[in-house]
Design a protein around this nucleic acid. Structure first.
Lengths: 183, 183
DNA sequence: ACAGTTTCTGACCGATCGGTCAGTTAGCGT
DNA sequence: ACGCTAACTGACCGATCGGTCAGAAACTGT
C-alpha cells in the first residue's frame, strides 16, 4: 500500500472516530509513522485529506441518486435504490458516518457542501413522493438507522458475514419502506 | 432564564452541531454575549459544560434501562421501553445526538464514559435476549434510526406536532421490533 | 453611603493548531 | 559515479486553544 493511501485510510478512520476538528495532522502523522510535514507533502491541507477520505463515497452516493428514474413509490425503483444504498453503506461505513456527523457545521468545506447538496436533493425527491409525517420518518429511520448501525459496528460485536448482514439490512429496510405510498 | 442555563443551552446546541472538539469556549461566549472568562466563571471547564449539557439526559436514559424488569421479548416490557425511549428522544434530541457523535473518541471524559457504560449494558441486555443477526440489526436501526431522524430535524422541514411525531415513531419502532423473539 | 458578594472582564500563560519553507535523505535511470 | 526527482524532516510562523488570575463593575442588604 502506498503512503498516499495509508494516510487517506488513517485520516478516514480518525475523522470517523474523533471528528474532523478533533483530529490533528500531528496525530495522523504519528499513526503513519511520519512527520507532520510529510503528511502535508502528500496532501496540501487538512481539507484535502478530508476530500480524499470521503469524496469518492460522496460521489458514488450522488451517482446512485442521479440514476434513479421515476418516483420512489414504484416497487422496482425502490428495491433497486435500497440495494444500492445498502451496498454503499457496507463498503463505505466510515465515510458515511463521518459525513453524517460532520455534515452540519462544516458547510464551508467543498466536499461537505457537495454532500449536503446531495442530501438536500434526496430530501426534495422524497418530499415529492411522500405525503405523511409517518412516511417521512420511515425514510429517515431506514436510511439513518442503517447508516448508524453500520457506523458503530466492530465495537464489542463479533463479525457476521457481510452477506448475512447485507441480506438482513435489505430485508429490514424494505420492510420499513414497504407501506409508503404516493401522495 | 439565568446566565447559567443560557450557557448550558448554547453549549448543548454548539456541541450538537459542531462537536465537542469543534466548539470553542470563545464561540460559546460570543453567542452568549459574554467574555470567555465569564463562561469559565459559571463552569469550571469545558468538560464541566459538557457534563451539564448532556449529563441529565444520560442519567435519565440510565434510569429507563434500570427500570426494565425481565426480557425485552415480553411485549409489555418492550412497549413500555419503546415509549419511554421515544419520549426521551423527543425531549433530549440534541443531547442524544451529541452523545452518539462524541461517544467514541471522548472516553476519558467522565460523563461520556458513564454514557458508554450505559450503551454497553444495553448491548449486553439485548444480546441476552436476541439471537439472530437480523434481530440485532433491527434493534440498532430502530434505536439509532429514531435518534438520527430527530437529530436532523428542524432542517428544511416544517414542524409537525410533537404528538403526531411521537405516535408515528412509536408505531414504526414497534413494528421494527415486533418480529424479535427470544433466543 | 457603605460593605459584601456575585458577576464579569482583559491580560496573560503554555500548549497545540494548520501551514510554510529551506534543506536533507533516498531511490533510480544513465 | 552522477544528476534528477520524489519523499521526508525540523525549525519556524501566526493564530487559536483551554485555563488562570487580579481586579473592575454591578447588585445586594443594611
Amino acid at each position: 500500500m502506498s503512503t498516499h493511501d495509508d494516510l487517506r485510510l488513517i485520516a478516514l478512520n480518525e475523522f470517523a472516530v474523533a471528528g474532523y476538528a478533533g483530529t490533528s495532522l500531528q496525530r495522523i502523522a504519528e499513526i503513519a509513522g511520519l512527520s507532520k510535514s510529510s503528511v502535508l507533502y502528500h496532501y496540501a491541507s487538512k481539507e484535502a485529506l478530508l476530500e480524499a477520505a470521503i469524496g469518492p463515497a460522496i460521489d458514488r452516493m450522488i451517482a446512485i441518486l442521479g440514476a434513479i428514474s421515476g418516483p420512489i413509490t414504484v416497487p422496482e425503483t425502490r428495491q433497486t435504490f435500497i440495494e444500492q444504498f445498502v451496498d454503499l453503506l457496507l463498503e463505505h461505513r466510515l465515510e458515511v458516518h463521518t459525513f453524517i456527523n460532520q455534515g452540519p457545521g462544516l458547510e464551508d468545506v467543498p466536499v461537505i457542501d457537495r454532500a449536503n447538496d446531495m442530501v438536500q436533493n434526496l430530501s426534495v425527491y422524497f418530499s415529492n413522493s411522500i405525503g405523511s409525517v409517518e412516511d417521512h420518518l420511515r425514510f429517515g429511520i431506514a436510511l439513518g438507522g442503517a447508516a448508524y448501525v453500520l457506523s458503530v459496528k466492530d465495537d464489542s460485536l463479533d463479525l457476521p458475514s457481510t452477506d448475512e448482514v447485507r441480506a438482513a439490512l435489505i430485508t429490514i429496510v424494505s420492510e420499513l419502506l414497504a407501506p409508503i405510498t404516493s401522495n
